[in-house]
Design a protein around this nucleic acid. Structure first.
Length: 150
DNA sequence: GCCAACGTTGGC
DNA sequence: GCCAACGTTGGC
């Protein structure tokens, strides 16, 4: 297996508040630095991301839905938005690149799906960067109208 | 706007 | 090291 395979090895979900940074913003920019994560568990998930990993984008608050697909374009590096008083957290960011929109998958739909009962999105509702199992990822892609999961 | 969940901080 | 107080996130 080459170091940078085109096949994603890990699957993730990242949250944003759509009025702060939406998937449409990412589509417009194509690529962005996913900065501002200030939670240790979320940071550790960022540290585990590899180039090419698949990322689903979720909108919290008003939307409460998975709205798009992205991929990791650069693995973890120091978050340039870290304030001096935050430095002891060794906060990091990754770069993600937009792939495509999906048919929005609402939180209600996710909660109603028995095969997603253990998804971290529900189990740890406050975690903003979380892993998905291959099964969860594939199912979410199907629910989002994406025929072929990468 | 409220509240539950939960992470962090600081006193002891 | 414990725990109360407090702050933040995110669903409803």
């Amino acid at each position: 297996m080459p170091k940078h395979s085109l096949v994603a090895r890990n699957y993730w979900l990242v949250k944003s508040e759509p009025d702060v940074y939406s998937f449409d913003d990412l589509l417009r920019e194509q690529k962005t630095a996913w900065t501002g994560v200030r939670n240790y568990q979320a940071r550790n998930n960022l540290l585990a991301m590899e180039i090419g990993d698949a990322v689903l984008c979720y909108h919290s608050n008003l939307d409460r839905a998975v709205v798009g697909m992205a991929e990791v374009a650069r693995s973890a590096y120091p978050d340039p938005t870290t304030l001096p008083e935050e430095e002891k957290g060794n906060w990091v960011c990754v770069d993600i690149r937009a792939v495509q929109k999906v048919t929005p998958i609402s939180l209600a739909t996710i909660k109603a799906e028995p095969r997603l009962a253990d998804i971290a999105l529900i189990k740890q509702s406050r975690l903003s960067v979380l892993p998905l199992t291959p099964e969860e990822y594939t199912l979410l892609c199907a629910l989002g109208g994406v025929k072929k999961a990468r």
